[in-house]
């Protein structure tokens, strides 16, 4: 067995150029599968948090009269306590704290704080930073009772962070009816921001919150334009990305098989000579498997590096794919070795 392994590694070294081409092709297959899987998993995750029927708006100012600003904010605030969620950049708090401050309003803040203690439905606020989640940042004069603590960020929060460049940001999760107090002496940008970032789900729509929200802005200085576009990402991935990925994978696997057969042909005469000299099929099998196993192990290592050594779904998918490739090659070898006839003349086979 030791000799078979040693001969396998000798073959590998002898055909190292082919080995590296093999490895590159296999890694390419894995990277393509990783990217496609990531896109699909992310999209499915998005769906699972019920973003399929989001109501999104573009705000169009239609008047210079902003006298109804605070009234609008108060109404929007009341409504967002009934359903939906949004966030905006608070000029007032930014100037107070000295750091970019984002205010998140959600009818059910527990959605955002799924790893934290339940929040009361009364006036409430919570503060944390992007950089120092879970650490006390600062206390300041807050118009409402405050609590400083930690939380996990949900996908909704991700969306907030994506829109910011700063590392240190104060996020205020708010469940209050007095938002208008926070927006005193500010211009229309905050209400623009609030409306631009608003999200409703199917339940909100069913409960009439969406219609109520739109009604607030009738006859105001802002006109809402609904961007209720269907979420076509999954359809696109399944209809276009996956067939393209499948095509590339099949092409690469065919290339790999051709290379493997050419390598096998090179070694075939040598294997036959070994069989004549007393090698068992098992010894030849072990010898040949060294090439494939090394290839797979190195590829798996490469994938792990790219995947940050995380044992997640993507790693599982890649592992299963590599295992399948391994079995296909081993089966191919088994069939060829089992069928071979060592009594044929070897003349001219070189």
């Amino acid at each position: 067995m030791m000799d078979a392994l040693m001969l396998g590694f000798k073959d590998l070294f002898k055909h190292r150029r082919l080995f590296f081409i093999f490895e590159a092709c296999l890694l390419m297959v894995c990277v393509i599968i990783m990217s496609a899987s990531f896109a699909l998993i992310w999209e499915l995750d998005q769906r699972s948090i019920d973003t399929t029927s989001l109501e999104a708006y573009t705000v169009i100012p239609t008047s210079n009269d902003m006298t109804s600003n605070s009234q609008l904010i108060r109404k929007a605030n009341q409504l967002l306590n009934k359903g939906g969620r949004s966030f905006f950049h608070s000029e007032y708090l930014t100037s107070q704290i000295g750091l970019t401050t984002i205010i998140v309003i959600d009818s059910d803040l527990n959605n955002l704080l799924y790893n934290d203690e339940e929040m009361s439905q009364t006036t409430y606020a919570k503060i944390f930073t992007k950089a120092d989640l879970g650490q006390t940042l600062t206390t300041f004069d807050f118009p409402e009772p405050t609590e400083i603590g930690s939380t996990d960020i949900s996908r909704f929060d991700d969306r907030i962070f994506e829109s910011l460049f700063e590392d240190e940001v104060v996020i205020v999760l708010l469940n209050t009816n007095h938002l208008d107090k926070w927006m005193e002496n500010t211009y229309g940008s905050e209400i623009f921001d609030l409306v631009d970032n608003v999200q409703f789900n199917a339940l909100d729509k069913k409960n009439g919150v969406v219609a109520e929200f739109e009604a607030i802005f009738e006859d105001s200085f802002l006109t809402l334009q609904s961007n209720n576009y269907p979420n076509d990402e999954l359809r696109f991935i399944l209809l276009y990305v996956f067939p393209a990925v499948a095509f590339v994978i099949v092409a690469l696997l065919v290339a790999l098989t051709i290379m493997y057969v050419s390598l096998f042909k090179k070694l075939y005469r040598e294997y036959t000579i070994h069989l004549i000299a007393g090698a068992t099929l098992r010894a030849i099998y072990v010898r040949n498997s060294v090439f494939i196993i090394t290839l797979i192990v190195l590829c798996l290592f490469g994938v792990s590096v790219l995947n940050g050594f995380e044992l997640n779904d993507i790693f599982g998918i890649i592992s299963i794919t590599l295992l399948l490739i391994f079995f296909i090659f081993e089966l191919l070898l088994y069939v060829v070795l089992k069928k071979r006839n060592i009594s044929i003349t070897l003349k001219g086979e070189d």
Partner: peptide
């Protein structure tokens, strides 16, 4: 067995050819 056309591993050395039966 000695074959008519020798049946040797062409890219290997004489030593590597002779040792083959000893592996098994």
């Amino acid at each position: 067995i000695v074959f008519q056309d020798y049946v040797l591993v062409e890219h290997a050395s004489a030593y590597e050819n002779i040792i083959i039966p000893l592996y098994y």
